[in-house]
Nucleic acid binder design. Sequence first.
DNA 1: CAGCATCCGCAACGATACTG
DNA 2: CAGTATCGTTGCGGATGCTG
Lengths: 128, 128
Amino acid sequence: MVSEAKNNKRYRCPVEATLDVIGGKWKPLILWQLKAEKLRFSGLQQSMQGISPKMLTKQLRELEEAGLVLREVYPEIPPRVEYSLTEFGKTVLPVLDALCEWGNKYLDRECVLGKNEELEAADGPALQ
Amino acid sequence: MVSEAKNNKRYRCPVEATLDVIGGKWKPLILWQLKAEKLRFSGLQQSMQGISPKMLTKQLRELEEAGLVLREVYPEIPPRVEYSLTEFGKTVLPVLDALCEWGNKYLDRECVLGKNEELEAADGPALQ
DNA sequence: CAGCATCCGCAACGATACTG
DNA sequence: CAGTATCGTTGCGGATGCTG
């Protein structure tokens, strides 16, 4: 996704570039998890219940290639890899906040307009 | 996408809801087009070169169901349908702006880091 | 532990033709 | 003009098994 983006993708507008980098099913969650703390692969996997290692790896590599995430490998036995946000990566946090805030507005509105059963409008990405 | 969202989708975080509503390949462009002016179906189709009528219809219906877009049908011959942003729809514009702004930062950075050939970092969603 | 390899279903997206 | 209807393609994301 990102790799292709860097190599050959032409965006019709910068919004597309952003969505390409921080969009998708997992990337926002990953970035949110890394907001506060450096995390290991297994830590991230547990934070986001249900993601397969393959998928997590893929997302992390893309975020790394985009320059948002730093991957530190400690050549130990057993292996240890830690992921954290780069300085540039931290610049997306306000964007994520904006998305989150509007999402809450949208969900509240949907709720008010009827239709919904139950709805915990979490204040941030929180699992379950 | 949105319809399913309203009916049965449970978001793990509000960011996902937002991306579901304004994300995807076409929705940001459509919203951007409608930012300034009310547009007819054919007008939108031309603004976004390459979209098929089926796709455009689908995106517009989803935006309509999400409450962002107003669809006005004039029962004339030939038919005329005009699309515009609702008041609620206008509340996403700042979010789009944020996405756009960060996208430009990202693209500039990618450019500076080498690799890119040509890159017109448009100031907003502008076709070609 | 932190992954890579492989296979695969399904939803998104696209092209074209046709209609009230 | 503003769409439907139909068919085809693509690739995201998931499941499972294996490795240094």
